[in-house]
Design a protein around this nucleic acid. Structure first.
Lengths: 242, 242
DNA sequence: GTCTATAAACAGATAGAC
DNA sequence: GTCTATCTGTTTATAGAC
C-alpha cells in the first residue's frame, strides 16, 4: 500500500535525484494525491491521452511536481502500477484464498468449497467495491496495451494469485495445477466475473440497471457461483469424460 | 461492410458538405484505407492517443484527407464503429446462430445444442480470426470509455445478438429469455471467451504460449464448451434448485 | 480529390525564484 | 517542496494552390 515512494530512476538528472527516501509529510501527501488521481485518469483515458496538466490540476498539485516527485509522467505511471499490485495483493490475499501453506492439507471437498468461495469473493470484491473501479480500468488497459508497468502487475499480482487458484483447483479435482487444461478452465471461470467489469456498459444497458449495486452483485455472484459448481462437478466426477 | 460512406455531419462547414453520396472510385479506396488503419490504431492506442498524422501516414493518405472525407477525426471514429457493427453483424448472423425465425420451432434439445454451438463458434471466430483482433480491441475500448460511437455498436450489433442468444437459451431451458437471470448467465458464459481476448497478455504469459494459434483456440473452445454444457444441464434439470 | 503551408492550441519537461 | 514562466515539439483543423 505504501511502496509508492520507491525511488524512481529519473530519465534525466532531475531535482529528485538528491532527495531522501522518506520525504517530508507534505511531500508524501502530494505523492499520494498524484498517484490516486493519475490511477483514475490513466485507467479512464489511457496513458497517452492523459495530460500531466489534467493530473496535476485534479490533484491540486503544481505541474512541475510530477517531474519532481516521480521523475516524469512515466515514473508516475509506474508508481500507479506499484500501488495497484500492492493494494490488490493485500486484499486478495485475505479475501480470496486464505492461508497458502494450508492448501496441501485440504481435502478435495474443502478445496472445492474454498475455490467456489474464491470465485464468489473475487466477484464481490471486484464488482462491488467502489475503490476497485479505477484499479480495474487501469489493469484492463495494461492488458490490452501493455507498457513496462504490466510487468509489475503480472509478476507482483496476477501470476502468483492465478497460480494459487490453480493449485486449489488441482487439490479439488486431482488434476495437474500447472496443466494447460486447468489454467484455461480456471481463467475462463474468472473471465465470467471480468465480463461484468470490462463489459459493464453492455451489461448495464442490457439489464436495464443504472449501476451494479449490492443486490445486483449478488445476482451475478449467484450465476458465477452456480457455473463454478457445475464445472467443478464435471471435473471431479469423470476425469476423462468430456 | 460498405456502410462506411454514410455521409458525416461535419462539425464545421467543410469541403465534404457538397460531395455526392457515392464518391469516386479513388475516394472510396482512400476512405476504406483510412477506416481500416484507424480501426487498428484507435483500438490499439485509444481515440485521444491516436493522432490523425499517424493514421494518415499508415494509410498513405494526406492528413487533410481525413477532414475531407469524414469531416474530422470524430467522423472517422464513427465510420470505424459503423464498419465494426456491419462486419461483425454479417459474420455473427451466419456463424453463431443460424436462422432467427426458426428459433421458435426448435425443440429444447435442438436449442441447447445450437446454443452450445453458438458459444463455440463465437469463441473460434473471436479468438482465431486475425481480422477480429483490431475489432475486438476497438469494441473493448468503447466498453470501458464509451464515446458516441458506442451507441452504434450497442444498438446495431451487441443488443440484437445478445437478445437472440437469450431467446435460444430460453428455448432450451424454458426460462424467460428477458429475465435478469438468463441475461446474466448468458453474459457470464460468453464472458469466458472474452477473457482470452481482453486478458490475452495474461493468458499468453500464464500458458507459456507465444500466440493463440488454431490448436490453442481448440483447447479454449473445449473448456468453454464444457462449461456451457454443464451450466445448461443444471438449468434444464431442476429449475428451482441452486 | 489530393496536396502544401500554416494557424492556434496543447503536450511534457525544466530553469530558477521563493 | 512548491511555484511561475518558458522552451520545444506536436496536436487538429483549415485555407488555398493544383
Amino acid at each position: 500500500m505504501l511502496l509508492v515512494m520507491t525511488d524512481t530512476q529519473a530519465p534525466s538528472a532531475g531535482p529528485d535525484s538528491g532527495r531522501t527516501l522518506e520525504g517530508s509529510a507534505a511531500g508524501e501527501k502530494t505523492r499520494a494525491n498524484l498517484v490516486r488521481v493519475a490511477l483514475d485518469l490513466f485507467g479512464r483515458k489511457g496513458y497517452d491521452a492523459t495530460s500531466t496538466r489534467d493530473i496535476a490540476g485534479a490533484a491540486n498539485v503544481n505541474i512541475a511536481g510530477i517531474a519532481y516527485h516521480f521523475g516524469g509522467k512515466a515514473g508516475l505511471h509506474r508508481a500507479c502500477g506499484e500501488l495497484v499490485a500492492s493494494f490488490m495483493g493485500d486484499r486478495l490475499e485475505t479475501l480470496v484464498a486464505g492461508d497458502p501453506v494450508a492448501d496441501a492439507a485440504l481435502t478435495p471437498d474443502q478445496a472445492a468449497e474454498r475455490f467456489e468461495a474464491a470465485v464468489c469473493g473475487f466477484a464481490r470484491f471486484v464488482l462491488a467495491q467502489r475503490e476497485v473501479e479505477a484499479i480495474a480500468r487501469f489493469m484492463v488497459r495494461e492488458q490490452m496495451d501493455p507498457s513496462p508497468t504490466f510487468e509489475i502487475l503480472y509478476g507482483g499480482l496476477i501470476e502468483p494469485r492465478h497460480r494459487r487458484l490453480c493449485r486449489l483447483w488441482g487439490r479439488a479435482t486431482g488434476e495437474d495445477p500447472e496443466s494447460e487444461g486447468v489454467i484455461i478452465t480456471v481463467s475462463a471461470l474468472f473471465g465470467q466475473v471480468m465480463f461484468f467489469r470490462v463489459g459493464r456498459a453492455t451489461a448495464l444497458r442490457r439489464l436495464g440497471w443504472a449501476t451494479i449495486d449490492e443486490s445486483n452483485v449478488e445476482k451475478i455472484v449467484a450465476a458465477v457461483g452456480e457455473a463454478t459448481r457445475a464445472v467443478l462437478a464435471v471435473h471431479r466426477a469423470g476425469k476423462g469424460e468430456v
